[in-house]
Computed example of a mutant assay.
Amino acid sequence: MNNHFWYKHLGLPLLCSILLFSAIAYWQLDISLANYVYIMEGRQWLYKDHWFFSTVLHTDARNLMISLLLIVFISFISSFFIPQLLPFRKAIVYLLLSTTLSALLITTSKHFSQIDCPWDLVNYGGKLPFISYFHARPEWMPDAQCFPAGHASAGYAWFGLYFLALKYCPQWKWLILGSILCLGLLFGAVQQLRGAHFISHDLATLTICWLTALLLYPLFFSGKVNRLITPFLNRKPLKHS
């Protein structure tokens, strides 16, 4: 991986992420956007329990993404029995690992962040005061697990597909990247309309998922795969007796 690759895929995106976080904090865009949405919905979270938003675009969409991940896992297992899948095993393992690790990092971060959802705050019909990222959370307040955004990761966790396209079919990379971004933005917007997240929650998820897929990419495709992993990735499918 040359310097241009790291500038384009690490330096520039990380700079954009820092600038966006800074803008959100400086202009209090989390509160401003949430206020606008809350007022627009009649000072209630109109879509919190709406069947299309809570069931189709949240529960069903999440289950669909889990099903797709299960297909990737089955493809990995099948590569040990189907010779035609052997050339794709490295790509399958990379996608499986980047997607799963992204989701795990988001889930783990939620347990330690102690950030509330908008719908829990007194300004939006809840019972808790707003505590910014830079202030200590009072001991009397219950645990919170709303940061980063979990549902948006169902889209952003698939950034690995972009890097696979970069490696194998670069003519498709921008279409794939755009599709993943749109999917993540859709899932993020759904939760913001339901009062589940602020915009910074989704930006954090996007950043974590991008960095996860990016940092795993050289391990698999720059000739520096761990020696313990290489024989495993190249193991031929089992022969039937």
Rank of each mutant, 00 (worst) to 15 (best):
I180R: 07
S98T: 14
I82C: 11
S98W: 02
A165R: 02
L164E: 04
F88I: 02
A103R: 12
D143T: 09
K127Q: 15
P148A: 08
I66R: 15
A189T: 15
L64N: 02
S78C: 14
S153W: 06
G195V: 06
M141L: 15
A152G: 15
Y162P: 09
Q191A: 05
Q84I: 13
M141S: 00
S78D: 08
C169V: 14
K90N: 03
A149M: 02
M65G: 05
P148M: 05
S79L: 05
F73H: 07
G150T: 11
L164R: 03
E139K: 09
H135S: 11
A152Y: 12
T99A: 14
M141W: 03
L85W: 13
R62G: 14
D116F: 12
F198A: 04
K127M: 10
Q84T: 09
Q191K: 13
V190S: 05
A189G: 13
I92M: 07
P142D: 04
A152P: 12
A154N: 15
L161W: 06
K127N: 12
Y156N: 08
G184F: 09
L177D: 08
T108L: 13
G178N: 12
K90H: 00
Y168K: 09
L68N: 06
P138M: 00
I92Y: 07
H197Q: 06
Y124D: 00
K173F: 01
F147K: 02
G188R: 11
W158F: 14
T107D: 15
H58I: 02
P148C: 05
L101C: 01
N63L: 13
C146T: 02
I115G: 00
K90G: 00
Q84Y: 10
L164S: 06
